[in-house]
Design a protein around this nucleic acid. Structure first.
Lengths: 238, 238
DNA sequence: CATGCTACTGTGGTCAGACCACACGAGGAG
DNA sequence: CTCCTCGTGTGGTCTGACCACAGTAGCATG
């Protein structure tokens, strides 16, 4: 409730809360440099190792970027790139069985449906990036791994087209979390070329529906597209 | 692509990847205890501080719980409680302006709509927990803070009723991320009692629609419920 | 005077060692 | 047999030291 006055039993939490508070109050914004670790330690009355533990957390969460040496790129710099942190969180939770694979897939369905609906409903949203990836996927000599990487890129491009960075970050993370399972699933598919061809045409159909502003069709198509692949790859529950 | 053989320039990443690999391969599961920090350091050929930085990250992400002393509760124990990590990530990203408030609210709309729809469509889902919170909110002497805490609890109970832990964790995190803004918004509402009364009846209507299996109505009601509050609290963009 | 090299300085990255607080458990004192 | 005390192993923290790295100031050289 009141993080600013909480005692924060552990020293590294003190550092974390202090930085979060600076962020909230606008004393720190992306692009700013944090004081040197040694100075921060003295200023907050903790050891340098405690400062480092807090910075490590912030780094993994995508809030700071650290650099050695001197100059403007050195030191701990505030950034705001949530992709990495979201991916790490989801990936590890899936690995630790905190997030069942089925729930991850179902969440993808919810978010992707909302994405295509939003993009289809807003004529101002450009799907140029998605089309570019779609064209790249037409190359005939793609390995399954390359194809799936482009597939992830395509879905991400759609999410970004929706303009919602939270959803885009979550979708990137969800995809990363199940990346190894998707890859393993591809190996189980007997006729990969046939599947790839089907996925290509499904992608094209989805984009067409989105571009046409047909939100309802886009929802249905993306839903079937995703559930279809997971069923074929032997990842679906039912 | 291949995390297991990646060089991992930094020592703490080595530790992190090793533990992630153990999780993926099933060598570590929730409930297991990690080796002592000192032993882990020797075994991986890194310093103890590097091990601690990795453990700190895992702790914040909700993957391990550390305890001092001896006995079965001491040491670093694998858990899988993603709530805390999701909340921390979203809260800090909002604080750092990586996640615009509007996108957080819009994502809430997407997820909550999907939740009520799923719960309404599945008669097996129990809304008993949500009803219990609803009853608690009828108390007349609630402060705005207490009321909003129960409100968060109610929405979370619905998410849990959907059975999707990923969505439940995300919703908990999204709510936490904007908690301070929600509180601040409540202070700007002139006639709080009137608003609280309206929220109560809206909650009741949503639960009724869900219990009746009316997914479409539930979607509309929850959508208006959320957008209504944000508009009244002066948090909405438009 | 211009140029290029060198040493210095400040930064994060890592390690080693020490000490503390804590909780359990073994062993002795009663 | 019971209770207390001390030992032991754990995480939590601090300190100091050293390294790698990048920029920079200043000197040597042309």
């Amino acid at each position: 409730m009141d993080a600013t006055t909480a005692p924060a039993a552990r020293a590294w939490q003190t550092v974390l809360e202090r930085i979060e508070d600076d962020l909230l109050e606008g004393r720190l914004t992306p692009g700013d440099r944090l004081p040197p670790e040694r100075e921060l330690a003295v200023r907050l009355g903790v050891g340098r190792s405690s400062v480092r533990e807090a910075l490590r957390v912030l780094e993994v969460l995508g809030l700071v970027r650290t650099g050695t040496g001197s100059g403007p790129t050195s030191g701990a710099i505030i950034i705001a790139t949530p992709r990495g942190g979201m991916s790490a969180l989801l990936r590890l939770q899936v690995a630790a069985h905190g997030f069942p694979l089925d729930d991850v897939v179902r969440t993808r369905l919810v978010l992707e449906s909302a994405v295509v609906e939003a993009v289809a409903a807003d004529p101002a949203r450009s799907t140029d990036d998605a089309h570019a990836v779609l064209d790249a996927m037409d190359a005939a000599d793609l390995t399954p791994g390359e194809f799936l990487a482009l597939d992830a890129q395509l879905h991400l491009a759609l999410a970004e087209a929706s303009g919602n960075v939270v959803i885009a970050a979550m979708m990137a993370g969800l995809r990363t979390a199940i990346e190894s399972y998707v890859q393993a699933g591809a190996d189980r598919i007997a006729d990969w070329e046939a599947t790839a061809g089907r996925l290509r045409s499904e992608h094209a159909a989805i984009l067409s529906a989105v571009d046409a502003g047909d939100a309802a069709s886009a929802r249905t198509l993306i839903h079937d597209h995703i559930t279809g692949y997971y069923a074929e790859a032997g990842l679906a529950r039912t």
